[in-house]
């Protein structure tokens, strides 16, 4: 922004919207924990990308897998970590390292898609409740209260049991679980923004509700939504792993990390590598999203700064 003429030196520099993204990136990188979270996340995203691309584009093989994630080797069950099997093999002789690599894109896909779907519906209901208030607010928020009254995993468990266990149903269940979380946050932020004078000014000019909501309110409540989304992905990944661990989530032989934990559970004492490696993967990915989310909150919400 070299064109600002009258800006007196020493005044706190507020970034113009164009450079907001740049400024945000700078802040995230300066914050050590969000930098760490970001790096881990990029690392996992690259792994997921390599798997997906290798599946989609015939003839390409950038996959980081050393073995097929599903081929069994009965003679080589419970092999400890070695040069051939980096993380060892499981009770069917499958390579744990390759399974974790393959599971990365499943886990990230479940986490992001469930949060995205939940956020879209949640934002819609939150805007409706916050902007129109009255009966809309009562109905939507009481419904949200009901959903939030269940422990998250229990609600998802109930939905998956009703729909049947499969990856898509896990995504649906976790989406439903995410809707009230977003609806609540959006409603609160809308209540705050809708009476700010620039929104009133647009109303006084005779703008339609749709224009007011989507062009003036939504952009100004985006920060809490972004922060919540990144934190919610972490929670959702944990819930998905929890569902798989309970056997109602992603079904074998798909190597979802929670399902791998479940597989290894019975052999934990003698062969801990069956559970340790997927466990570490879950912890790292969830930690990465949480750290990034905390960093985003610090950067986007000036009130939370020290």
């Amino acid at each position: 922004m070299g064109s600002t003429v009258n800006q007196s030196p020493g005044k706190a520099e507020i970034a113009a919207p164009e450079s907001r993204f740049k400024g945000l990136m700078k802040q995230l990188i300066r914050n050590k924990s969000s930098l760490f979270g970001g790096i881990i996340l990029i690392f996992f995203l690259l792994i997921a990308l390599s798997t997906v691309l290798s599946q989609w584009i015939p003839g390409w093989n950038f996959s980081l897998m050393t073995h097929s994630p599903t081929s069994t080797d009965v003679l080589n069950r419970f092999a400890p970590p070695s040069a051939d099997h980096w993380f060892g093999t499981d009770q069917n002789g499958r390579d744990i390292y390759s399974r974790i690599i393959f599971g990365t894109h499943l886990t990230i896909w479940i986490g992001t898609s469930a949060v995205l779907i939940g956020a879209v519906f949640g934002i819609f209901f939150g805007l409706l409740a916050g902007y129109y208030g009255k009966i809309w607010d009562t109905i939507i928020m009481r419904a949200a209260d009901i959903l939030l009254a269940f422990p998250g995993i229990l609600l998802a468990l109930a939905i998956v049991s009703a729909l049947g266990a499969s990856m898509n149903n896990v995504i649906i269940a976790l989406s439903i679980y995410n809707i009230p979380v977003f609806a609540r946050i959006v409603r609160g932020s809308v209540l705050e923004v809708k009476n700010i004078e620039y929104v009133e000014a647009i109303r006084a000019l005779g703008a339609r509700d749709g224009k007011i909501i989507f062009q003036h309110i939504l952009p100004n409540v985006s920060s809490p939504i972004i922060v919540q989304a990144s934190l919610q992905i972490a929670t959702t990944i944990l819930s998905a792993a929890g569902l798989s661990f309970l056997g109602v989530g992603v079904q074998p032989p798909l190597p979802e990390w929670g399902a791998m934990l479940n597989d290894g559970r019975s052999y934990m004492w003698d062969n801990p590598h069956l559970t340790i490696f997927p466990g570490i993967a879950i912890v790292l990915l969830v930690l990465a999203f949480n750290m990034l989310g905390d960093g985003l909150r610090d950067a986007l919400d000036p009130r939370s700064k020290k």
């Binding site: 000014a201 647009i202 005779g206």
Partner: peptide, 23 residues
Amino acid sequence: DLRQKRKEMQIIFQDPYASLNPR
């Protein structure tokens, strides 16, 4: 009809820092 009529009557607010959309 009210939306159309609004062009006849406008308002100037108290707080110049809140009355303009920062974006």
